[in-house]
Design a protein around this nucleic acid. Sequence first.
DNA 1: TCTGGGGTCCTAGGACCC
DNA 2: TCTGGGGTCCTAGGACCC
Length: 397
Amino acid sequence: MDAFFASVELLRYPQLQGLPLVIGGGRRRADEALRHVPEGGTLADIPVAAFPRLKDYVGRGVITTATYPARVFGVGSAMGLMKAARLCPQAILLPVDFDEIRRCSRHFKEVIREIAPVLEDRGIDEVYIDFTEVPGGQREGGRVLARLIQKTIFAATGLTCSIGVAPNKLIAKMASEFNKPNGISIVYASDLQTRIWPLPCRKVNGIGPKAGAKLQAHGIHTLGELAACERAWLIQTFGASTGAWMHEVAWGRDERPVLTHSEPVSMSRETTFERDLHAVHDRAVLGAIFTQLCAQVAADLQRKGYVGRTIGIKLRYDDFRIATRDQSIAQYTADAATIRRAAGQCLKRVPLAQPLRLLGVRVGSLVKADSPQALEPARAHAGSRTGHTDVLSGSLF
DNA sequence: TCTGGGGTCCTAGGACCC
DNA sequence: TCTGGGGTCCTAGGACCC
């Protein structure tokens, strides 16, 4: 989906079309002005001047989506809002409306499934579709079906998307970015050398900042240069698994099927505090947040019908270092108090002398709540705990 | 006054079991 | 006066993605 979060807001506020618009932010949402709907009017009648501006934002949020008129100023996804405010203070800032986003996400996926049922969910705004068995799916290399999907989604939701059609998921993902927004791109296996090899290695889904930098350091910038590397050298340099995989993707090879179903592995809740908190000085407020996170995860599990038995915590310190601890318990659970107790044990095993920026709670090893395993006691690991125990932590939580 | 939240997968060492 | 080998589970950290 094209600039999904921003596009969803533009449906409600068409008066913002063409203006720099940024979606993002944390708890402190400067959206009070949006109550200024004129007498007898709608959301579309709110004057542009009433909308909150980036320069008025106070907090630690990041940008989720920026529209093109905002990107011109150099602001983009994942940028801190404070930095973005210096680049484009007059940009309009709207918070993420998760309920509305989820509704639109379900809607566009349903529209696609009615046309092409073999669909893999890749998050809120992205899917893989297998055209192979869809009637007409091969016409013009898939362009006819892609156009039909685009038009049907737009008619149903008013939203645009970009589609890449290719022999496999690896190439299709790259192709989908060739012609944004509202574009279609068809890439054949025979186009590998002309259309894929000139691309930077970072365009591959799975080659991130670290692998990209390491490739660069070896003078490998494009996929063509990667394809020219000896498989044995790649394995020697990046390890057996990653090295072999890099060789495959550089040659455009990918056999992964489109998966229509998957089970969740873990569920978590985490929060970044408005200011850094200290385990001793801010003990009460930290404890309340901790309890609330456990309650939220428990509610998520119960709502979705899952139980888990690996309970974990995550801390982010003021210097951005991350620490995690987890513990597997004997009984599967979705109970807030049980989660809280196990997570509290985890907290006693992690250093707490340094100010904290973030706290998270996670439940893993999930099974369906109504499955036979959910009732059976599993083996809880009772091995020796040689981990670090901070002198401060014992009585805190 | 930089840097969210919710995920998946991989690696690697140690415990433990047969 | 020597100490195997294979398999699974548990835990911590890290890379990466949307």
